[in-house]
Design a binder for these strands. Structure first.
Lengths: 147, 147
DNA sequence: ATTACTGCAAAAGATTTGCACTAGG
DNA sequence: CCTAGTGCAAATCTTTTGCAGTAAT
């Protein structure tokens, strides 16, 4: 489940950031989006309701929230833009290389791997990206129907 | 260990690609580079010896080798460019956010996670990126000396 | 009243594309 | 010879930056 709106907005307030309407709107969208939106996607969703909104502000706010540790950036396979995930518990992602959908995948082995890395790496680990890419079920069907 | 030069070049020949000097040189560099070079890094390493080489050709060749499944693209944390890895056995990566170094991390849990994803996801998995980012040992020391 | 935040435009960096020329088979 | 491959320049796409105006506290 995603971090909810209260946690996102409170983290801004607590860190003494100003509560602008743009930031509030972006926090709402992130909390409500199960599909890990990119900066552009956030912008497109909010633009109709906030016509003056700029993409720069979306980037600024997302970067701020990343800095507070309440959302995580995930860069997709290949050329796809960075997606932002309000679910900060450790989990892997599955991305479809056809329709670009991005979904979560929970597994005990993610936890095990994280522990192993922390224990053996000699790195001060700050975060991780665990991405598997391929064809989702509906794109596999389309593929089969074509050939 | 990296896939060696023979395997890379033979995969091109076997797939009926023409053996140009540029492709041969790029295969050699990939086989010999333990540091997972980016397209630009490959270009910089080869430019002195092949002054006419273009970055476009490097991108083309890397893309071809990715298509043949003998190297894997790995996009780093944040804004870092894509790195290409001639080690195609499943393993995780550790990237230092300070010096940008990228190294391998082998773990039984990677294998376990891969199996779990294949078994439960409903995706046709094509590949994966498993990246942990943080501070490497030498950058941790520099950090400590400063503060 | 301050000063952080926004929004625009321009810049930067990585990768892709169009196309004429070249060279591998 | 013939077409795949190369190399250049320009285009594209994402993200960053500089800066003047605006608004949150």
């Amino acid at each position: 489940m995603n971090t909810d709106y209260q946690v996102l907005s409170q983290s801004l307030k607590h860190a003494k950031y100003r509560m602008t309407p743009q930031r509030i709107a972006i926090c709402k969208i992130l909390a409500e989006s199960p599909d890990h939106p990119s900066a552009q996607m956030v912008y497109d969703m909010l633009k109709p309701k906030y016509p003056s909104l700029s993409l720069t502000t979306v980037y600024n706010t997302l970067e701020t929230l990343v800095g507070l540790g309440v959302i995580s950036p995930r860069h997709g396979s290949g050329d796809a833009p960075t997606r932002y995930d309000a679910n900060t518990t450790p989990h892997a992602h599955l991305q479809c290389i056809r329709c670009n959908k991005l979904r979560d995948f929970d597994s005990q082995h993610v936890t095990d791997l994280n522990k192993d890395v922390s224990a053996r790496a000699g790195y001060h680990i700050i975060g991780s990206y665990l991405l598997y890419y391929g064809l989702c079920e509906s794109c596999q069907e389309k593929e089969n129907n074509k050939e």
